[in-house]
Design a protein around this nucleic acid. Sequence first.
DNA 1: ACCGCGATCATCT
DNA 2: GATGATCGCGGTG
Length: 187
Amino acid sequence: MAPLSRTFFARPAADVAKDLIGATLLVDDVGGLIVETEAYDQKDPASHSYVGRTARNASMFGPPGHAYIYRSYGLHWCINFVCGAEPLGSAVLIRALEPATGIEVMRQRRGNVLPRLLCSGPGRLSQALGVTGTLDGQPLDRAPFSVLSRTAETPVVRGPRIGITRGIEAPWRFGLAGSAYLSRRFQ
DNA sequence: ACCGCGATCATCT
DNA sequence: GATGATCGCGGTG
């Protein structure tokens, strides 16, 4: 598995989101296989970048291959990979992982919960990997991050995104077909 | 299985 | 004062 290069991320968000399925995300050697993603871009009414650059979304307008991390509902952290060429303001939300390494650490952080609930959701996986706002804007090709390319061809399914009230029709959610670690099933 | 709700806070009206 | 790219729990069918 090779680290994903910055050029990998310098493409439209939907392309990156699809190609991230099957890749590996680690934070300080805790993480696993990416099984669910969603794409957001600046023209998208569901996107944080839709209203233009603000203090919160500044990382979305920075260089590709960096993290955009925000707080959700005042409680949870969620991690995105900034991507796209011009125009800026696009990112991929990482929604679910299949846990692979550091599972004991995940269990300590998440509480003694069923394995399939460790990383099945953007807030859950951020908690399991110890992701907080201090990593917002940090590059993905350096510690503590490691994002590694997938090793085999991967069957990808797609559908509408979850938990949004605008842009609900766009099929910009991607998943590993048949995975038991999705936050919700497709179709 | 589905539904409703409370937690908690940055951002915006 | 309301809203959200969420989660976990407790109720009901």
